[in-house]
């Protein structure tokens, strides 16, 4: 069972307390109606799915309830670091 560091609680805790929430740094467009079908499709469905370093969102759902971002290696399943939502991509 992976240990995950919650940047809000500043505690490293078992993954049972957390829920995965998809790729990080995909901001909802400010004016969705102004987007072309292709751009909207890109926002909705297209994801990086990298082999290796992946910026992704987690929620400390059974803790503080906050969403935060993490860098996890999809090959080794190791967390490189976690950081607060709103901080720039790391």
């Amino acid at each position: 069972m992976i240990l995950i560091h919650c940047p809000y609680c500043d505690e490293t805790l078992p993954e049972l307390e957390f829920a995965y929430a998809g790729e990080a740094h995909i901001a909802r467009p400010l004016d969705p109606s102004g987007l072309s079908d292709e751009d909207w499709e890109r926002y909705l469905f297209i994801r990086a799915n990298p082999r290796g370093r992946h910026n992704e969102r987690w929620r400390h759902v059974h803790g503080c309830g906050r969403f935060f971002n993490a860098v996890r290696d999809t090959v080794t399943d190791k967390f490189e670091l976690t950081y607060k939502a709103g901080e720039p991509r790391k």
Partner: peptide, 13 residues
């Protein structure tokens, strides 16, 4: 609740 928290925390903080 999870969905609403998601939008509230990350899209419209």
């Amino acid at each position: 609740l999870n969905m609403m928290e998601d939008y509230l925390q990350t899209e419209w903080p």
